[in-house]
Nucleic acid binder design. Structure first.
Lengths: 341, 341
DNA sequence: ATTGACTTGACATACGTATGTCAAATACGG
DNA sequence: CCGTATTTGACATACGTATGTCAAGTCAAT
């Protein structure tokens, strides 16, 4: 039988009240008695039954997901994964809502974050680029007692409680390795594109790519990253120029947002070239491209896992419970048509 | 506020006792009242608080994992994943143990399965090839009221409550697609090996492989499957013969158990040949081979996920709760050195 | 209308924890 | 050793559900 607070009280030779005071960090306990209780806890290996505690407390967790607004297929998949996880029993006793912020405008982000009802907010999962303003807002949220996890993009300087997402450097390496193997024995260059290099994700992926290519596949040259800030014309033009300029273009690596534009341009500019294409993120667009054979492989972080993991971690933080790391590890998945799900 | 049994009683105009009788399927309730209660449940959208119920019942779940005995790295990883999941909070209120059976001896398997204390067993996860004897034993377990899930290998004719594992046909297709892409524009043949084709996993993987190769990569020919029943000499010999006979041998596909033997033989027989190697299952052996560059990619079903999923599903069955399919989907992962975890 | 069988409801207790009240015990300064 | 401030313990109630007991209610058949 697992020990209960009653057992602790008996073992420590104190009353239930005192045990409660110690366990819940209330004041007015003499150090000697506090030690006795802690000793008893250690000796008996007591762990609080969180479910019973939550029942008694009528505990409800209040979590908010902060996502970037604007048209972005990947963010949409994240949002629906959050909603789905919220509906399932995973989020027992949790109220979850999603708010959108204009990530491009740091001040708007901060304004929105500060307008959260910090009074009864238990945790926040934030997907946004790290700016000084965001950092401040996070400090503000944390000082109000809520936990904060970074979602998808890490916020390394913001003292978040956790990061939920993949290691983007490794993701870039993975892309490089795929390209290198798909182009076994071939020589040529690789076009690298993304919507924007301001997000650290793209930067890290690019580093990973370069590292692997130069170390393991020096016969392949990655061209300078093309950024196409939501501008279809620009990418089409650049792409055409690049294809014309590099007769030895062998592959395309689409590093993240903007897959749709990229693929459109590719369809128009190089329908007959036999290019290897690797992209990121599983969305309706990339899924279809995979099925159509336009993309060879995509590198994926499972959004369902992201959402569930963020929720579990926030909850564990609130309960002051340990995190089951093995479960929370977000994997870099490689998806081809055959293992598409 | 979520409705409670008290709300149901009030809404239905009956007593708490009657609500309890209906909800827990006890006898002696007039149909009219039963209907009233069910109506109230529907109207208020009542869902039982499983945690509170388990608390009141002092519920403990008793689960048993049945794994094949004998030296097998993959099974070892499954076992330790089960132990790890059991230690973590995932298996709150569950007692889990692992028993090993000699899968090659159907009668021994059955004897072992029948010796389980069915009295207070709530669920069983079985990893074993399906034989008529196993089928009977499962029927026996189920008739005692325990739930059964098939683990890793499906048991399609055994009326299990669930299958936890990957679709092996798709896994074979994935292997084929990888090989086809790694050998873009090349022509030649592929050596396919496994320890034994009696398990349906290998058969299905082989089908998947053949399907993809013949449809998408007809320039690649897969040789007849080599089975090497735990016999290092045999595989070495066969491998040497195969390498000698097929000057155009380009790749090796190791379909499952026996990776270590396979890799040993490869090291001895063809150290200088630039072969593409794809294998299954992440074990200490394949991990090292990946790091050493001996294997290009491995196809993995995450054993941590397998273990947790089996436990969650068994528990959901016991609670008569719904299964959150998206979470329980075991993915076919492709692991290279760069996204190794 | 009465019997006996079946149904129902009121009530109590329990699970493990949280939380509040209040009197009793203890410590400490003088 | 007293008075006061602090610490402690006994007890009650609650969370949502389960389960048992027993008296009271309802029903159908006589």
């Amino acid at each position: 039988m697992k020990p209960t607070v009653h057992d602790i009280a008996r073992e420590a030779g104190v009353s239930l009240s005192t045990v409660d005071r110690v366990l819940n960090g209330r004041a007015d306990v003499r150090p000697k008695n506090a030690e006795r209780v802690k000793d008893a806890v250690r000796r008996l290996g007591y762990v609080r039954d969180t479910n019973a505690a939550n029942l008694a407390k009528k505990r409800r967790y209040k979590f908010t997901f902060v996502l970037p607004e604007g048209p972005n297929h990947f963010v949409d998949t994240v949002a629906s994964a959050v909603r789905e996880a919220t509906d399932a029993q995973v989020t027992d006793r949790a109220d979850v809502d999603i708010i959108y912020v204009n990530a491009a405008d740091p001040h708007a982000v901060v304004k929105r974050l500060k307008s959260l009802d910090l009074g009864r907010l238990d945790g926040v999962a934030i997907m946004a680029p790290e700016t000084p303003q965001v950092r401040d807002a996070i400090a503000h949220i944390k000082s109000a007692g809520a936990y904060v996890v970074a979602l998808v993009s890490d916020l390394p300087n913001s003292r978040c409680d956790h990061f939920v997402g993949i290691d983007n450097f490794s993701a870039g390496q993975t892309a490089g390795a795929l390209l290198g193997r798909f182009l076994r024995k071939e020589t040529g260059c690789i076009l690298v594109a993304t919507n924007s290099m301001v997000s650290r994700d793209s930067i890290e992926r690019r580093f990973g790519l370069d590292e692997v290519l130069s170390r393991d596949f020096p016969r392949l040259k990655a061209l300078p990253t093309i950024e196409f800030h939501d501008d279809p014309d620009r990418i089409r033009e650049t792409l055409q120029r690049s294809i014309a300029a590099h007769g030895d273009l062998k592959a395309v690596y689409s590093m993240g947002s903007g897959n749709a534009i990229m693929l459109d341009a590719l369809r128009q500019s190089a329908p007959d070239r036999d290019l290897v294409v690797v992209a990121h993120d599983l969305t309706s667009v990339t899924r279809q491209a995979l099925l159509d054979g336009e993309v060879d492989a995509i590198i994926v972080q499972n959004v369902g896992h992201l959402a569930r993991s963020a929720l579990r971690i926030l909850r564990a933080k609130c309960d002051d419970a340990g995190i089951y790391e093995a479960q929370e590890q977000i994997r870099i998945e490689i998806i081809m048509r055959e293992n598409l799900y």
